[in-house]
Amino acid sequence: MGEFYRVIVTRVKDGDTFVGTLIIPVPTLQMKMHLEEQVFRLNTADTPELSKHEPLAEEARDYTIEHLLDKEILVQFSKKDAFGRWLTDVYLDGDLNNRFNDLLLKEGLAHIYKKGE
Protein backbone atom coordinates (compact mmCIF):
# COMPACT_ATOMS: atom_id res chain seq x y z
CA MET A 1 0.00 0.00 0.00
CA GLY A 2 1.07 3.59 -0.47
CA GLU A 3 1.88 6.43 1.86
CA PHE A 4 -0.58 8.43 3.95
CA TYR A 5 -1.76 11.87 2.84
CA ARG A 6 -4.29 14.47 3.93
CA VAL A 7 -7.24 15.43 1.76
CA ILE A 8 -9.77 18.20 2.21
CA VAL A 9 -13.03 16.86 0.78
CA THR A 10 -14.78 19.49 -1.35
CA ARG A 11 -17.50 17.45 -3.09
CA VAL A 12 -19.13 14.03 -2.85
CA LYS A 13 -20.14 12.45 -6.15
CA ASP A 14 -21.78 9.36 -4.69
CA GLY A 15 -21.28 6.96 -1.80
CA ASP A 16 -17.88 5.70 -2.92
CA THR A 17 -16.46 8.63 -4.91
CA PHE A 18 -15.46 12.10 -3.77
CA VAL A 19 -13.41 15.09 -4.90
CA GLY A 20 -10.90 16.98 -2.84
CA THR A 21 -7.63 18.80 -2.43
CA LEU A 22 -4.69 16.45 -1.93
CA ILE A 23 -2.07 17.87 0.43
CA ILE A 24 1.45 16.65 -0.28
CA PRO A 25 4.27 17.59 2.10
CA VAL A 26 7.55 18.65 0.47
CA PRO A 27 10.02 18.44 3.38
CA THR A 28 13.06 19.58 1.39
CA LEU A 29 11.31 22.87 0.65
CA GLN A 30 9.55 23.04 4.02
CA MET A 31 6.17 23.47 2.33
CA LYS A 32 3.06 21.60 1.21
CA MET A 33 1.69 21.27 -2.31
CA HIS A 34 -2.08 21.38 -2.77
CA LEU A 35 -3.46 19.46 -5.75
CA GLU A 36 -7.08 20.55 -6.21
CA GLU A 37 -9.97 18.69 -7.85
CA GLN A 38 -8.47 15.24 -7.33
CA VAL A 39 -11.01 12.41 -7.63
CA PHE A 40 -10.93 9.55 -5.11
CA ARG A 41 -12.65 6.16 -5.26
CA LEU A 42 -12.93 4.04 -2.12
CA ASN A 43 -10.95 0.80 -2.17
CA THR A 44 -12.99 -2.40 -1.70
CA ALA A 45 -16.34 -0.65 -1.03
CA ASP A 46 -18.86 -0.35 -3.86
CA THR A 47 -22.03 1.67 -3.22
CA PRO A 48 -25.20 1.74 -5.36
CA GLU A 49 -25.06 4.04 -8.39
CA LEU A 50 -26.95 7.33 -8.20
CA SER A 51 -27.03 7.63 -12.00
CA LYS A 52 -28.85 4.28 -12.23
CA HIS A 53 -31.27 5.17 -9.38
CA GLU A 54 -30.27 2.01 -7.52
CA PRO A 55 -31.77 1.37 -4.07
CA LEU A 56 -29.82 2.98 -1.20
CA ALA A 57 -27.76 5.14 -3.59
CA GLU A 58 -28.99 8.39 -2.02
CA GLU A 59 -28.54 7.03 1.50
CA ALA A 60 -24.96 5.98 0.71
CA ARG A 61 -24.19 9.40 -0.78
CA ASP A 62 -25.75 11.18 2.21
CA TYR A 63 -23.76 9.00 4.64
CA THR A 64 -20.55 9.90 2.81
CA ILE A 65 -21.49 13.59 2.81
CA GLU A 66 -22.15 13.46 6.56
CA HIS A 67 -18.78 11.87 7.32
CA LEU A 68 -16.44 13.42 4.72
CA LEU A 69 -17.68 16.66 3.15
CA ASP A 70 -15.73 19.79 4.18
CA LYS A 71 -13.43 17.73 6.41
CA GLU A 72 -9.72 17.05 6.31
CA ILE A 73 -9.25 13.28 6.21
CA LEU A 74 -6.34 10.87 6.21
CA VAL A 75 -6.06 8.71 3.07
CA GLN A 76 -3.81 5.97 1.81
CA PHE A 77 -3.60 5.04 -1.85
CA SER A 78 -1.25 3.28 -4.20
CA LYS A 79 -2.54 3.89 -7.73
CA LYS A 80 -5.23 5.30 -9.99
CA ASP A 81 -7.96 3.22 -11.59
CA ALA A 82 -8.86 3.10 -15.30
CA PHE A 83 -10.95 6.28 -14.83
CA GLY A 84 -8.08 8.27 -13.29
CA ARG A 85 -9.45 8.14 -9.73
CA TRP A 86 -7.17 7.52 -6.76
CA LEU A 87 -8.08 4.13 -5.21
CA THR A 88 -8.25 5.10 -1.58
CA ASP A 89 -8.60 3.90 1.99
CA VAL A 90 -10.07 6.68 4.13
CA TYR A 91 -9.39 6.96 7.86
CA LEU A 92 -11.58 9.16 10.04
CA ASP A 93 -10.13 11.37 12.77
CA GLY A 94 -6.61 10.21 11.80
CA ASP A 95 -7.42 6.84 13.41
CA LEU A 96 -6.06 3.84 11.49
CA ASN A 97 -8.66 1.66 13.24
CA ASN A 98 -11.53 3.81 11.92
CA ARG A 99 -11.60 3.07 8.18
CA PHE A 100 -14.53 4.76 6.47
CA ASN A 101 -14.61 2.09 3.74
CA ASP A 102 -15.51 -0.47 6.42
CA LEU A 103 -18.20 1.75 7.94
CA LEU A 104 -20.11 1.83 4.64
CA LEU A 105 -19.94 -1.97 4.50
CA LYS A 106 -21.10 -2.36 8.13
CA GLU A 107 -24.01 0.04 7.55
CA GLY A 108 -25.16 -2.07 4.60
CA LEU A 109 -24.66 0.84 2.20
CA ALA A 110 -21.95 -0.90 0.17
CA HIS A 111 -20.74 -4.34 -0.79
CA ILE A 112 -17.18 -5.52 -1.22
CA TYR A 113 -15.91 -4.47 -4.62
CA LYS A 114 -14.07 -7.05 -6.66
CA LYS A 115 -12.26 -6.00 -9.80
CA GLY A 116 -14.28 -6.81 -12.90
CA GLU A 117 -17.72 -6.43 -11.32
Rank of each mutant, 00 (worst) to 15 (best):
E66P: 13
P27I: 05
R99K: 14
Y91V: 05
S78N: 14
A60M: 01
G20V: 01
L96H: 15
W86E: 09
V39H: 01
L74N: 12
D62G: 00
N101A: 07
L104D: 05
A82T: 12
D89I: 09
P55K: 07
G15A: 04
N43L: 11
L35H: 06
V75T: 12
Y5M: 13
K32R: 04
A57M: 06
G84Y: 13
V90W: 07
T28H: 06
K79R: 15
K115M: 02
H34T: 06
D81G: 08
D93I: 08
D81F: 07
R99T: 02
N97I: 02
L56T: 06
G116D: 02
K13C: 12
E72R: 15
T10I: 02
K71T: 07
Y91A: 05
L50W: 07
T21I: 07
K115N: 03
M33I: 10
L74Q: 14
M31N: 04
I112V: 14
A57L: 08
I23M: 10
T21W: 03
F40H: 01
H53V: 09
P25M: 03
V75K: 09
V90Y: 07
T88H: 14
L69V: 13
K106L: 09
Y5Q: 14
E3W: 10
V19I: 15
F77D: 06
V7C: 08
I73F: 09
D14F: 05
L68K: 08
T88K: 13
E59I: 08
R85F: 03
L103M: 14
L105Q: 02
F40I: 02
V90L: 10
D62F: 00
A45I: 00
A82C: 11
L22C: 10
V39F: 01
E58Y: 07
